[in-house]
Amino acid sequence: MFVLVNLKAYDVDPVEIATAARDVAEESGARIGVAPQAAHLPAVADTGVETWAQHVSAVEHGSHTGSTLAEAVADAGASGTLINHSEKRLKLADIDAAMDAAERAGLETCVCANNPDQVGAVAALGPDAVAVEPPELIGGDVSVASADPDIVEDAVAAANAVDDAVAVYCGAGVSTGEDVDAAGDLGAEGVLLASGVAKADDPRAVLEDLVSPL
Rank of each mutant, 00 (worst) to 15 (best):
M1A: 14
F2G: 08
L4H: 15
N6S: 10
K8R: 15
Y10W: 15
D11Y: 00
V12A: 07
D13H: 10
V15H: 07
A18K: 04
A18C: 08
A18F: 08
A20S: 14
A21P: 10
D23E: 15
V24K: 07
A25V: 03
E27F: 10
S28V: 04
G29P: 04
A30W: 06
A30K: 00
R31H: 11
R31K: 13
G33P: 02
G33W: 03
G33T: 00
G33Y: 03
L41E: 14
P42Y: 04
P42M: 03
A45C: 05
A45Y: 07
D46H: 09
T47P: 05
G48S: 14
T51K: 00
W52G: 01
W52L: 02
A53S: 12
A53F: 03
A53D: 06
Q54T: 08
Q54M: 03
S57A: 05
S57P: 08
E60M: 13
S63E: 06
H64S: 04
T65N: 02
G66E: 08
L69H: 12
A70Y: 05
E71V: 15
A72K: 08
A72P: 02
A72M: 04
A74T: 12
A74M: 12
S79G: 15
G80F: 04
L82P: 10
N84R: 05
H85T: 11
H85C: 07
S86K: 00
K88D: 00
K88A: 02
R89C: 02
R89S: 07
K91S: 13
L92Y: 15
L92E: 15
A93D: 15
A98L: 01
E103Y: 13
E103F: 14
A105W: 00
E108G: 11
C110M: 07
A113E: 03
N114P: 11
N115K: 12
P116D: 09
P116E: 09
Q118H: 11
V119P: 00
G120P: 12
G120T: 12
A121Q: 13
P127H: 09
D128G: 13
A129P: 08
E133F: 00
E133I: 04
P135M: 01
P135A: 05
L137V: 02
I138L: 11
G140E: 06
G140Q: 06
V142Q: 12
D150V: 10
I151C: 13
I151S: 06
D154Y: 06
A157N: 03
A157P: 02
A159L: 07
A161R: 15
A165F: 12
V166Y: 06
Y169T: 03
Y169H: 13
G171L: 07
G171I: 08
G173W: 01
V174A: 09
T176E: 05
E178Y: 11
A182N: 07
D185F: 14
L186G: 09
G187E: 03
A188T: 15
L192T: 00
A194R: 08
G196N: 01
A200M: 04
D201L: 01
P203W: 12
R204P: 03
A205K: 07
E208C: 04
D209C: 02
D209W: 06
D209T: 02
S212I: 08
P213H: 15
